[in-house]
Amino acid sequence: MLRYILKRILWMIPVVIGVLLIVFTLSVITPGDPVDNMVGPDATVEAREAAREEMGLNQPVYVRFVKYVWGVFTRLDLGTSYSNRQPVAKEIMHRFPVTLKLTLASVIVALAIALPLGVLSAVKQYSWVDNITMASALFFVSIPQFWFALMLLLIFSVKLQILPASGINGIRSWILPVAMIGVGNVGNLARVTRSSMLEVIRQDYIRTARAKGQRKSVVIFKHGLRNALMPVIANVGNTIGVSLGGAVVAESIFSIPGVGQFMLNAINSRDWPSVQGGIVVLAITFSIVMLLVDIVYTIVDPRLKTEFQARAKTKRKKGAAA
């Protein structure tokens, strides 16, 4: 298992390089001279050239790319921001916890609501509970996050004035952003839980458990849910990815100092090192999330663990034979 995790972590290196290559290419082909934003459009020619030199923009693209990648892997150096000349790594690291908190909070809240709802819908298939849950799930999955955020503001801050409209002071100010990101996830996860659960409760082992005299609720949550979790877990991985994106919207609307807002600003000012840095950190986060998802898989479903160990064994045997 340890070897597997190690291997997966090593696999992140090419992933990160690949992501960087794409972002780097985009930054090169996107129109607009980053120097404009470093010194302003009215700067003198000398100042422009000096800035170009300082940021290494006068070097060929491939040299810049190699240098950048080398810096990322050897010194964890994500470059220097064009707009405020601060190290990007530092800038991101003090924003990242906020984004992570926001994302995880919204996913956890979403799961806490979606799992019971999905299970209930599956158990009471075609009942009014099921119909209402699935209709609202579809609704919440479909609504644009941005619009929804403004609606939340309008209702809870402007009209009812019960929740703060911006800032992060205390738990109350987290409610709206978490709700904004989480609500689509609730819809999505509830649907996945329901369909997975529907499949599971038709399985023989559910009947076996009932035939043992187990309570229906225990059968559903102990025997059913754990089996139904697999697709849900796979979805949680993706959901975290999507929520990282949702955090961008939430952060800019609710004035939350996270990586999303940082990247949005950076994109607007063509501050490529900041954009790249943000994407690297998000890509690594996403890779780690996916690794965690795979590890959770093997905990939830012992079949995968055995399969994995068996594969490792045959490989070792092959190695020994060779």
Binding site: L153, S166, I253, S255, Q261
Partner: peptide, 12 residues
């Protein structure tokens, strides 16, 4: 307070 969206600023 930095609020990127113009509508959100008015709502605040």
């Amino acid at each position: 307070r930095i609020i990127g969206d113009a509508s959100a600023r008015i709502m605040n």
